Amino acid sequence: MAKVIGLGGFFFKSRDPAALAAWYAQHLGLPVEEWGGARFEDAKHPGYQLWSPFAADTSYFAPSTQPYMINFRVDDLDALLAQLRTSGVEVDERVDDSEYGRFGWIVDPEGTRIELWQPPVA
């Protein structure tokens, strides 16, 4: 059975992402990078975790109206998406392949968009 193997990231809406990221860097020591978020390495699993503020008017979380999106790291994206479809879960038909890995999306029963990420092979 394909499954989630870790947290890939937490993405959320912010009125001023740059100012908020600067606050987290200053007060909590987050290693904010040029792109505006923080990346945390995970030696146990391939990939990393992200903390990333988005503009308040982003449409990236659509169709969800929630102010956040969770990203889970998965072991087999295609198999998991097939399992979820069979179970009646709302699955976005789009799958993105990039240098960062493979991405798919679902919506939970409360309308939260969940991003599923299979990291690239090391």
Rank of each mutant, 00 (worst) to 15 (best):
M1Q: 01
M1K: 04
A2R: 04
A2M: 05
K3D: 09
V4K: 01
V4R: 01
V4Y: 02
G6Q: 09
L7S: 06
G8C: 10
G8A: 10
G9A: 03
G9V: 02
F10P: 01
F11V: 15
F12E: 06
K13S: 09
D16M: 03
A19K: 08
A19Y: 00
A19L: 01
L20C: 10
L20P: 03
L20N: 06
L20T: 11
A21V: 07
A21H: 06
A22H: 06
W23C: 09
W23K: 14
A25L: 04
Q26W: 00
H27S: 04
V32H: 04
V32N: 06
E34F: 05
W35K: 15
W35T: 12
G36C: 14
G36W: 07
E41Q: 12
E41L: 12
A43F: 15
H45M: 13
H45Q: 15
P46F: 14
G47I: 07
G47K: 06
W51E: 10
W51Q: 07
S52N: 14
S52I: 07
S52P: 02
S52D: 11
P53F: 09
P53E: 15
F54Q: 08
A55G: 11
A56M: 11
A56Y: 01
D57Y: 03
D57W: 04
T58Q: 09
S59G: 09
S59Y: 01
Y60N: 14
Y60L: 15
Y60C: 14
F61Q: 11
S64N: 08
S64D: 05
S64G: 15
T65P: 06
Q66H: 12
P67F: 05
P67Q: 10
Y68M: 10
I70Y: 07
N71I: 06
F72P: 05
D78R: 08
A79I: 13
L81C: 08
A82V: 15
A82K: 07
L84Q: 13
R85K: 15
T86P: 06
T86M: 11
G88L: 12
G88N: 14
V89W: 00
E90M: 11
V91T: 04
E93C: 04
V95G: 02
V95C: 02
D96C: 07
D96L: 11
D97T: 12
S98G: 07
E99H: 00
Y100I: 00
Y100E: 02
G101H: 02
G101Q: 03
R102Q: 09
F103D: 00
F103G: 00
V107R: 14
P109F: 03
P109C: 05
P109Y: 01
G111N: 15
T112N: 15
R113T: 09
R113G: 02
R113I: 03
I114Y: 00
W117G: 02
Q118V: 11
P119Q: 07
P120R: 07
A122P: 08
A122R: 00
